[in-house]
Design a protein around this nucleic acid. Structure first.
Lengths: 334, 334
DNA sequence: CTGAAAGCGCTTACAG
DNA sequence: CTGAAAGCGCTTACAG
């Protein structure tokens, strides 16, 4: 019913091999026949069937993205970070013919096995894993023998050896805290959610170092739950404990604290210094605008996608391991 | 190299037809053989190859989602609306074996032709089109003869006749404006971006009706561009023109106005009434929290996905045309 | 530069 | 309830 390569071959008066060659660009044929084939294809409305192609080449032209949505059931909704990553992936994929993205938001940690089946069933060509996944899961990925690029993962062992793109999280924590100190704040809290995670630990290390250098004491707030809500709660505790500044390991927490502080009539930026981390849009949409550590999420996603595509398209590519720089964006909250 | 149906058949001592039957659940076989096949499959680590299956059944188990990202290059990033929709789609798809979502963010209106090719190449089983697309494009979709569900589209002609899920936008505009009037505001502006679009026109109609009933005069602000930035600019104009309230056709605009107003020292909620539309999380993350019209985006996405799946799984389903109710959420900005 | 043939992994009539 | 056969639309050696 649909128009196939055979129809095109007949119409153009060539064999199907030739038609195939024209479309895959594998074998060169005379410019004349090439044009004839293209004309015939266009005339008949022929489009290669990717499933058939996939069956024989064993390439799906599908990139699988894995998101740990067990951290938050509605990952895409609650965390702008992932949206930016997605947009950046599409911005790169748009220029690559026939590549599509399929996403597996992992609802429960226990369901990581399902991801394995999914990878097999869809036969994805490569994987973009965003966020923290433990070693066992990385082993599973390794067993697939397909290219993998990790974003923000710190559990890699030497035997996994995947390409990755991270940010300089420790420096980020350091810069944020140092900035607060320079601004004259002395009682600086660290506000986090799930601080035990490897990534948050890095940011925490930066905070610690800055405080140590300035001979200041650390105060840590940590809990599990929704970052924004945690921030709301931290605001009260911050006031109660007489702290005058906070470095938040995520912008979302800072936005919550800002909300809580404003409600209490605290003049954020003057009487209280607040710094976030990520530089999501939200940070400059609120008022006063949030000082934060910019990790250039979009570039991170682009870089990771390009890295993956590189490995995919050039079998000799060894991939790459990158740590992107980070920088402080001073706005109104400090 | 990979384990196929043949290997399983051999291991289980049955024909491949039987193995296929077990996995597709088409033909019933003895419970005994079924178990044997399953055991063999598990033992060998067999997983059906979707590409091969797709080739023969002409079903890809892929749902195509089309987003008009020509409105905004980084749609997912800039508009929380789409993220919520995506999350809702995944929440439904998770319970459907082997369905995946692929997305086509349409960068330029001119590239709508590419979408057509994409649909053919990937052979998507059904389409979810989110946002406004013109009639010509709907015609193209129609020509594919696959199920389509529209979300927030108002350009459908009777010959297209697709299923859709919309919200009661007119009532929403009415409720928002009426609320401001009840709160005692009299100089109520309508603030929009690309007001000429059919959806915004609906919300505008509601605003008009409420004003007319109260015998108040309308003041319209409209421009093209990023909603948040537009809001920032509107804030100045609002003050300059002595208006004391605004109904925004999107929360994002309201957040911008809020930002601009706060910067000018205006006490929003007391001296100025502000109402948004959508009820995205951002609205209660800012301070003061935004009064808005809730359109339950998540449910909208779920409903649309279920509708599509229904048509896909039950060929006798005729789909459905739904207009979801909308309701006012009063918070601190009014 | 082009054609005939095999085959990717599966499903689906059709016989038994 | 089960098996042998055809074929989905394509690519890829292999001859010519």
């Amino acid at each position: 019913m649909s128009v196939t390569i055979i129809d095109v071959a007949r119409e153009a008066g060539v064999s199907r091999t030739t038609v195939s060659n024209v479309f895959t660009g594998k074998d060169k044929c005379s410019e004349e026949t090439r044009l004839a084939v293209l004309a015939a294809a266009k005339h008949l409305g022929y489009k290669p069937n990717l499933a058939a192609r996939s069956l024989i080449t064993n390439q799906s032209r599908l990139i699988g993205m894995i998101l740990p949505s067990y951290v938050d059931p509605n990952t895409l909704t609650s965390s702008p970070f992932y949206n930016i990553i997605m947009d950046s992936v599409y911005s790169v994929l748009r220029n690559e013919a026939y590549y599509d993205l399929i996403i597996f938001p992992v609802q429960y940690k226990e369901k990581l096995v399902q991801v394995s089946d999914w990878i097999d069933a869809r036969n994805v060509d490569g994987i973009l894993a965003v966020g923290e996944f433990d070693r066992n899961f990385l082993k599973v990925l390794k067993s697939k023998s397909i290219p993998v690029v990790l974003i923000d993962n710190y559990s890699q062992t030497s035997d996994a050896n995947f390409s990755y793109v991270n940010s300089d999280d420790t420096t980020g924590g350091y810069l944020a805290t140092q900035h607060l100190i320079e601004k004259g704040f002395r009682n600086i809290a660290l506000c986090s959610v799930e601080l035990h995670g490897p990534l948050m630990q890095k940011r925490y290390q930066g905070y610690k170092r800055a405080l140590k250098e300035a001979k200041l004491r650390e105060t840590v707030f940590d809990k599990t739950g929704v970052p924004f809500e945690a921030g709301i709660q931290y605001a009260e505790a911050l006031i109660a404990q007489g702290l005058d500044a906070a470095f938040c390991t995520e912008d979302m927490i800072a936005v919550g604290i800002l909300h809580g502080l404003l409600k209490k009539g605290v003049k954020v930026g003057e009487d209280f210094g607040l710094v976030g981390f990520d530089n999501i849009y939200l940070g400059y949409q609120v008022y006063p605008e949030l000082t934060t550590v910019d990790q250039n999420i979009f570039e991170k996603g682009e870089t990771a996608t390009r890295t993956l595509l590189n490995i995919l398209n050039h079998s000799n590519s060894t991939g790459s391991r990158l740590v992107l720089p980070v920088n402080l964006v001073e706005r109104e909250s400090t």
